[in-house]
């Protein structure tokens, strides 16, 4: 990389660490889970054998589930810390929280795809990044809670009717298929496969983005940094 290109921090070490946990645990849980969902397919039986049969796959699935619960807990602590650090203001422009502008951005982006208008300008987090984030949030809650019912049916049915296990099976399995269909296609494409990023966007592992990329992809954040030299200095990679 050229010395003259300035880079800026986009993701801190905690963000990147959590993402590695998400990535690894999702891959393990998805492989072992899908192999059980599609048992009549040849690839599922092969995958099951490679994971050490039903007991091996079950162990892998539950270890991944515990990793997911662990990062969910860490993330919860981080949210509390983040709110405290920004003195309660989580509605700032660089926030991950959805706001009405995201709907406008989505509409304008679609119009841009169709060639009707120029590319809209995005803030620190774009609407699709926010959707990815809340999809994991929703997924971990739905799949996690239904997964607990399936893991401990004896305990769950102490305060739930038996049909709750049937409902948990439908929830767990359908939501997992949605997650797999979303992550391996939509998320992969949006981050790595589109023309500007192909073949790979390394920022989730390095935490850095180049000045060019920041200006193009997150123009509103760049403008905010221009107005606040302290923010700029803090974000610049030395």
């Amino acid at each position: 990389m050229s010395e003259t290109v300035t880079h800026y921090w986009r993701l801190n070490l905690f963000h990147r660490f959590i993402h590695v946990l998400v990535m690894v645990s999702f891959a393990g849980a998805a492989l072992s889970g899908m192999a059980l969902k599609f048992t009549t397919a040849a690839w599922a039986r092969l995958a099951m054998q490679l994971m050490g049969g039903v007991p091996g796959a079950a162990l892998l699935h539950r270890v991944c589930a515990m990793v997911i619960a662990f990062y969910g807990f860490l993330h919860f602590i981080y949210i509390v810390y983040d709110i405290a650090r920004h003195k309660g203001s989580i509605f700032r422009g660089s926030s991950m929280l959805p706001r009405p502008q995201d709907i406008v951005d989505l509409w304008q982006h679609l119009m841009y795809f169709l060639g009707r208008r120029p590319r809209p300008q995005f803030d620190r987090f774009t609407y699709w990044e926010k959707f990815d984030y809340f999809a994991v949030f929703w997924g971990v809650l739905m799949i996690g809670l239904s997964g607990l019912v399936l893991w401990f049916p004896e305990i769950a049915t102490q305060f739930l009717p038996g049909v709750a296990i049937n409902i948990a099976q439908i929830m767990h399995s359908d939501e997992a298929l949605l997650a797999v269909g979303f992550i391996f296609v939509v998320h992969m494409f949006n981050t790595h496969m589109r023309a500007e990023k192909f073949p790979v966007d390394m920022s989730i592992f390095t935490g850095k983005v180049s000045e060019d990329e920041l200006k193009k992809e997150h123009a509103l954040e760049w403008e905010r940094m221009q107005e606040d030299p302290a923010l700029m200095e803090e974000a610049r990679v030395k």
Partner: peptide, 12 residues
């Protein structure tokens, strides 16, 4: 499932 409850029978 030695700890199965009466409710668990409702599982179809």
């Amino acid at each position: 499932h030695p700890d199965a409850t009466e409710n668990m029978v409702g599982y179809l």
